[in-house]
Amino acid sequence: MSAAAPRPGETLLSVDGISLAFGGVKALTDVSFDVRKGEIRAIIGPNGAGKSSMLNCINGFYQPQQGRITYRGVERRQMRPHEAAEQGIARTFQNIALFRGMSTLDNIMTGRLLRMKVPFFWQVWRHGPAMREEIEHRRFVEGIIEFLEIEHIRKTPVGRLPYGLQKRVELGRALAMEPELLLLDEPMAGMNLEEKEDMCRFILDVVRQYGTTIALIEHDMGVVMDLSDRVVVLDYGRKIADGTPAEVKADRRVIDAYLGVGH
């Protein structure tokens, strides 16, 4: 059903006239933008602007009342989150959503679940095909663990890890899905400068090494302006600006939204 994977620079995802309301509260009103293959696309805006709602629409948690989402050239209206996962959309959460009872390794291994196909019958014996599959995916996951430099906490339950490392494990879990489109919801919230710099480096490396397209929400303007190729700005659920970081920074309406308007 899906068309051929877009080449770098072509449109991977386009969002067209999305409106989402919870009862009388309008979270998003007629928002349109696109994400090109291989770029880092930032979504910014003041608190409550509808950024997270936008991500939730893209990966199927929310069903927008109006509008179209076109992904890989296929238009869709309704999608369940696991269908989004099957089509290569992964994401991390603003407030970490790791599996707290499991180790770092097991958490990242869950990212491989969709690619593990050996039927239940073999799982029961944990030999033969099931074990071979397990080892093959373990090898891939070890690659991610090395990439993120978290070898030392491989067997540690994630509940015991400090905040910055948890964020990194969550990124690892999303990467293990080998996503085509990676949605990052405030990947640097609550981090100190050093952790932020590490995370920036990982994000840039992900794009370069894995060729992943990234859409991210972030509040740190310095990071956003440095990292992203293009920025879309939301305010009260409406798009107020869209363009390169330099264009957005100079936009009058963006400045008003962030700093307030003199009346």
Partner: peptide
């Protein structure tokens, strides 16, 4: 194995589990 991890993922955070497919 795979099944046990899926179960524990559902137990710990079902929203994220759904997101992993």
């Amino acid at each position: 194995g795979r099944v046990g991890r899926a179960w524990m993922a559902v137990r710990d955070m079902d929203i994220a589990a759904e997101l992993m497919g």
